[in-house]
């Protein structure tokens, strides 16, 4: 296992989800939630399963369900069921305070803003990071001479 920054993991998982068929907005939400979920023992398995289910599955459904419940509530407190680490990750990336209730639900207080939670490091196995980087690479455009020379609008040496 190697340590990565949250932003690195979020970045590679956003692209990995897009490379696996997720829409832009769903991929971004998933990546944030997943980077949090990876702190748990089950996190990597959940992330891999979610990516494998694309273009359907939880990467689409979790975001829609949460959006639906927030829209229904309008404002005030929203009660979400508890769930696996990825589901909780989705809730923890909302910009609102959330707490687990004595009955095991998660209460989200839409009138109390909260700064995002960011672990100092996210630990990932070499196998998983390689897998996600390969999926992310599906969003990159292959190199051509035309792209190399013209795509950035800049020359190749700067010795002035």
């Amino acid at each position: 296992m190697n340590g990565y920054s949250f932003t690195e993991v979020e970045g590679v998982l956003t692209k990995a989800a897009r490379g696996s068929g997720a829409g832009v907005a769903h991929a971004a939400k998933f990546a944030k939630a997943a980077a949090l979920a990876l702190a748990s023992d089950e996190g990597a398995d959940l992330v891999n399963a979610a990516l494998a289910d694309l273009p359907k599955g939880v990467i689409r459904d979790h975001a829609i369900w949460i959006q639906r419940d927030l829209a229904d509530a309008g404002e005030g407190t929203v009660m979400f069921p508890n769930g696996d680490a990825l589901w909780v990750g989705y809730i923890d990336t909302l910009p609102y305070k959330s707490v687990e209730t004595p009955t095991g639900e998660i209460a989200v207080y839409m009138d109390v803003f909260a700064k995002p939670v960011r672990p100092p490091r996210v630990f990932i196995s070499n196998e998983n990071i390689a897998k996600w980087q390969a999926l992310a690479a599906k969003t990159y455009v292959p190199e051509t001479e035309q792209s190399r020379l013209g795509g950035a609008g800049a020359g190749l040496t700067d010795n002035d």
Binding site: Y140, V141, P142, E143, Q146, S147, G151
Partner: peptide
């Protein structure tokens, strides 16, 4: 787009370039 070459951000012509 993002090039596979060091993930350099680039801009292309949709009608003349692949990707």
């Amino acid at each position: 787009y993002v090039s596979e070459a060091k993930q350099e951000p680039r801009l292309g012509d949709r009608y003349l370039e692949p990707g």
